[in-house]
Design a protein around this nucleic acid. Structure first.
Lengths: 188, 188
DNA sequence: ATCATTTATTAACAATTGTTATCGTCTATC
DNA sequence: GATAGACGATAACAATTGTTAATAAATGAT
């Protein structure tokens, strides 16, 4: 029950290719400014999102403070998967970091595409495996590395995050304060 | 690519019930002492495990030190899922903590059961979702909580782990040293 | 262009953890 | 029962992070 993406279904550039001629009309294009909340923590997600341009973060409120735990960029699908799938309240918010252009699909239309194309299910399963793998990795990175090592790892494996995301979000993502991240950057 | 379990297929007490009359003979019972390594980091996993009695930890070597990151108990299935599924070297070891009695199934027999029961696939998918949820939760707990808060959380949500697992493994699981855990326990 | 807001850096001090080492207890095994 | 090894508590000191606050720089809005 948590943070996830559903890239398969919306990702035209991935292994699975949506028939754009046939289904393109089911997606609406939405252009929004930075810091636009697409889904609020506590609401039920009724839409899937796919980023054409821009970037997004997932975060939740913890004792009055923002806790950011995932970033998404161009050509990635985003949703509060448990909420979208089961109609439960989302445990986190989805918010743009930059001005963004986003494809939006309703749950009904999303389900329709999958009903008509059961072959996609195998792909969904594969994607869930990948996501599982992603979380396992992050989790292990937390256990075995210090904040400084995690920052170095991020710098090595995901330089695009460092480049585009404001530091206080990255600090939150690393589980430290922005002050501490600033010190780390100073000595790295 | 990491730590997982495959409880569905082996878990007689879960939602999915294996036809024990029909498939029981495919499982071998193995009784082993504490600290027995069932799978070594770097080896390819060719067996799935299901705990009848005892408990198990998953760990990997990080710069010469043990890093424990998951525990399993009675009636849970355990495997190095990526290794078992794709024939890749396992990124972690599977080791008993207590003297244990374990059902073991070969990959061939495991595949056989699934080939003959395609209906189980939906269940597998559901289990992967749950596992995904589990890791998301753990990950978020790391981001938002201090070691002390994580310990309190563990005490509240998984007291059986505190009770049965030696403290230095728990410390590792919490991402801290056993010395620090000892101090935390002293002031909690 | 100006003003307000957001973001990042730095400083000072408190709190926590890591490291290393010692000591006592418990347990397994012979 | 003796002995070795595993386990946990504790102490002392170094290193790191958190907290709070002040300041500077960058960004946005009017």
């Amino acid at each position: 029950m948590m943070a996830n993406q559903i890239s398969p279904s919306l990702n035209k550039s991935s292994d699975m290719v949506i028939d754009w001629e046939r289904y393109g009309h089911l997606f609406k294009i939405k252009t929004v400014p930075a810091k636009t909340i697409l889904l609020n923590e506590g609401e039920v997600s009724r839409h899937g999102y796919f980023i054409k341009e821009g970037c997004i973060r997932l975060w939740f409120n913890n004792k009055g403070k923002d806790v950011t735990f995932q970033f998404f960029f161009e050509n990635e699908g985003v949703s509060s998967i448990e909420s979208f799938k089961n109609g439960e309240p989302s445990l986190f918010s989805i918010e743009t970091i930059e001005p963004s252009t986003i494809y939006v699909i309703s749950k009904n239309n999303f389900d329709k595409i999958f009903m008509e194309n059961p072959v996609y299910n195998a792909f969904v399963q594969e994607t869930i495996y990948k996501r599982l793998s992603h979380y396992s990795r992050l989790f292990m990175s937390y256990i075995k590395n210090t904040p400084e090592e995690r920052y170095r790892e991020l710098l090595k494996n995901s330089p695009h995050i460092i480049k585009r995301v404001p530091q206080h979000y990255i600090a939150s993502y690393l589980g430290i304060t922005s002050v501490s991240l600033s010190r780390i950057r100073n000595r790295v």
